[in-house]
């Protein structure tokens, strides 16, 4: 299908073949461009990436683009339906919901990115080490992973958040605690395949040390699928973070956290639907965007999942 998927095929000529020169100089910018052109073949994925990019931009620029102060109360304006003044209406304290959602994007993005930044490397190292070294290392690391995996993620996060005191920081740690095992398992499965390849055998023959094999040979091959997994995971993290917020164990009031917004808004659900629905919609869009981006990434990065 493309030049990057290895197929058992020689291009006939053994001298530098002419057909090759087209691909021969794929460097730097060109590689980004080729990634971009592959991404363009995934229209849904492009939508996901665009939505995520917008969210990230909104999160970064929150202080400048939010029309109102997210925490300024104005009881005279409480529970106003969506209008030109307040596009998404106001909540029970008269705070502008759109502004709160914009600031909430900051919290969600920060949570998602911090959790991924912790979970990715931890899961990768544990999984790759288990898969590559095998034997006792594998048994110990994987039994430990299984133990963590056997806990219901939200319950463990709840227990941890309850014990450590509610707050954004504990929410991040609590979610991280339970979301590395799937990454570790995936990395281990990849490492098991890579360690038996001929190029690793060849590296053993020229005396590459085990640590060198681990970090320079095996790990790079596991990163793409871990990246895909992480992106898909971000959807779950968004939901878990919102759940913790909903239960009052995440970001604390008056911080504008989407889950907490639903939680406080649900009392007005029947008469003032926009109060809980707007943040719910934000959560839905965000986790959906992570999901479809992850799917598109998998189609691009993981040759085993390419559609013919």
């Amino acid at each position: 299908m493309s030049h990057s998927t290895p197929t058992k095929m020689s291009d006939g000529g053994d001298v530098p073949a002419r057909g090759l020169s087209r691909f021969a100089r794929l460097r730097g910018l060109d590689r980004v461009r080729s990634f971009g052109s592959k991404m363009a073949k995934e229209p849904l994925g492009v939508v996901g990436v665009v939505v995520l990019a917008l969210l990230l931009l909104v999160a970064l620029l929150a202080p400048w683009i939010a029309p109102f102060d997210p925490n300024r109360q104005n009881l005279a304006q409480a529970l106003q339906p969506p209008s030109w003044g307040h596009i998404m209406g106001t909540d029970e304290f008269g705070r502008d919901i759109l502004s709160r959602l914009i600031w909430g994007a900051r919290i969600t993005m920060r949570t998602v990115l911090s959790v991924s930044a912790i979970v990715g490397p931890v899961g990768l190292v544990i999984g790759v080490a288990a898969g590559f070294f095998g034997g006792w290392t594998d048994s110990i690391l994987m039994r430990f992973t299984d133990i963590v995996l056997s806990f219901p993620a939200l319950v463990l996060a709840l227990a941890f958040a309850a014990a450590m005191g509610a707050g954004l920081g504990t929410a991040v740690i609590a979610i991280s605690l339970t979301s590395w095992p799937p990454v570790a398992r995936l990395a281990r499965a990849e490492a098991l395949v890579v360690r038996n390849t001929d190029y690793v055998a060849a590296a053993r023959l020229y005396g590459a040390s085990p640590l060198r094999l681990l970090f320079f040979y095996v790990t790079p091959m596991c990163i793409p699928s871990v990246l895909v997994r992480l992106t898909l995971n971000m959807a779950v993290i968004t939901l878990t973070a919102a759940s913790l917020g909903f239960l009052g164990l995440g970001a604390q009031p008056p911080l504008a956290e989407w889950g907490a917004m639903i939680s406080s808004g649900r009392r007005f659900m029947l008469d003032y639907w926009w109060v809980p629905v707007m943040p719910g919609f934000a959560i839905l869009i965000t986790s959906l965007a992570f999901n479809i981006t992850g799917d598109a990434l998998r189609d691009i990065l993981d040759p085993r999942h390419t559609r013919g």
Binding site: S4, P6, D11, D14, P16, F23, L26
Partner: peptide, 9 residues
């Protein structure tokens, strides 16, 4: 990179 080479190369 290896994917830019033919089998013989």
């Amino acid at each position: 990179f290896p994917h830019e080479l033919s089998g013989g190369q």
